[in-house]
Structure formats: C-alpha cells, structure tokens
Design a protein around this nucleic acid. Sequence first.
DNA 1: GCATCAAATTAAAATGATTCTAAATTGTTG
DNA 2: CAACAATTTAGAATCATTTTAATTTGATGC
Lengths: 145, 145
Amino acid sequence: MPIFNAMEPQSPPTNISNALQRLRAVKLRPTRQRLALAQLLFEPGDHHVTAESLYEQAQAANVRVSLATVYNTLHQFTAAGLLREVVVSSACTYFDTNVSDHHHFFFENRGALVDIDGANVDIRGLPVAPEGARVSRIDVIIRLT
Amino acid sequence: MPIFNAMEPQSPPTNISNALQRLRAVKLRPTRQRLALAQLLFEPGDHHVTAESLYEQAQAANVRVSLATVYNTLHQFTAAGLLREVVVSSACTYFDTNVSDHHHFFFENRGALVDIDGANVDIRGLPVAPEGARVSRIDVIIRLT
DNA sequence: GCATCAAATTAAAATGATTCTAAATTGTTG
DNA sequence: CAACAATTTAGAATCATTTTAATTTGATGC
C-alpha cells in the first residue's frame, strides 16, 4: 500500500512530534501503536474515550492495533498521568485526556461526559478525611437524564 | 421440617413486619426471599452491600436464595427507591440502604464506603445543566488511599 | 381448603468488558 | 547488526452481571 495516494483525499499531516515528546516525558517507549494512540488522544484537545471507542477510532484511521494494546496503553497512560480514569457507570470505563482539576456532567442516556472546570467549584462542609486516610481525589458528578 | 426444633439453638426472633411493610409500600410481593433480603438490608441500619456480599450474608443466615435473585432483588429495591446505587468502582456495583441526600468517602484499597451527610455540604460555582437536561443527582465522592 | 395463574425464583448458559497468556515482533543499546 | 528486553497480539480466561427457560410459589376466587 502506497504511503501517499494522490487519488484519495489526504488526511491532514499529523504532528507526530508532540506525541513523541509526551511519550518521552513519561518514559514510555515510542512504539508505532503508542504514537498513533497518543495522536488520536492528545491532538484533538480535551475529550473522553472508552477502550472500544478509541479502538474504533484507530481502525477508522487505519492504525493497526489490537484491542488488548488499546487497553494496555490506556492504563499505562493513566499510570503516567497523561490520562485520568472517570468512574461514572458500571457499564464501562471512561478515560479523560483532561488531567487538570475538574468535574463532570454525565448524560446517562447517551453515556457522554462534559467537563466542569474545577477552579470555579467550591465545596464547603465536607468532613475531614478519617484518621490515617489520604484524599487522592474529590469527584463531583452531575448526572443528567 | 418442623417450624421450631427445640434441640437447635434458635435464631433471635427477627422482626418481619418492618420488612413486610416496606415491601407492601412499594407493591413488591413479599416472597420468602425478598422478605429475608429486606431484613438483612434494612434491619441493621444504613450500610452498603454488593450482590456478592449480600448473597454471602444470606447464606451465613441460612437463607436459601440464588445469586440471580439477589441481583434481581437489589435492582427491584433500587427501582422502588428502597436502595440507591453507588458508582465508585468499575469492579462492582454497590447498593446503599441510605437513600437520603448524602455523599461518600470511598476507601479505594478496601473497597469500603462511608456516608457523608448531604445536609452540611454546600457546592458552589457549578454551571447550570445544559439546555434540555434534567439533573437526576449530584454525587460527591472523596477517594481515599 | 384447593385450583388456577401470573409472578417470582432458579440453575445454567450467555454476555460483555476487561485481563491474562504465551508466542511473535520490535525498539534500543552496545 | 546482534542481542535482549520491552511490546504487541490473538485467543483464551475471567468475572460481574444478565438472560433463558423451566420450575416453584403467592394471591385470588370458589
């Protein structure tokens, strides 16, 4: 298969260097699969994916990658702090490319997430964490129907 | 099998009427299984269960009930407003016997939940729900490690 | 009481997201 | 370019949960 076929509408030249930099920064080997997934994840700006949705996106973009690798990569990126896991539904796991302080709207019928900037949100009256426990995160989820 | 065997240590006389009242109130047929599960759920006061944990509790209490029925019953009780589903982990679904306004501490290592009374919690700065969407609930989860 | 019938229960199979395994492939390093 | 560890992958395994289809049971009327 030719790399560039003049007869086909060409996809915009993707910037691989940003993805490469991110992988290097977190010391993950820049394999073909990780580079491609990083581009799909981080070039479009903040959004949410599931393993399935990212896998489909990869296939649509002609990236040869297995679903197992998509799962592996999502977890590695999350462990590295490039992604954040959002638990809103027992049906499946969502990953968020926005790793800054924020909360979520969750559209229960569509299974869609929308970010809420955390800077403006002020929560008062929460009890202190029990002795010996450390707060890893506070999640606010506004469920919509 | 005799209803009462004088040779066996007798389990304390459980108050079935409360469970019965609850089932009647939500128009669920008071079957042996539902009555027993209602007692296990609602007599001890507020607590959290999973299908597995309630099933084990039932077995320990010599209640003959299948895991499928435990699942069915938890969902029916939830639909009836007797229970509330708490989504904190993709590993399994938690059900809460406390259905009043409140939030949660979640101990991620133990998988345990602790209620936070919602009356004292004040959340400011949340954006309004998108046009056409209705807020079904706001969940605050404080994750502890 | 007893028959009737819809509702409920159940064992077992099916599902579906996710993880694991073990073999093949691929970056990296000297 | 050899060597080796890291990565990928197909396919199997896992595990919570749901479904199926058959059996059992509670409610109702007689």
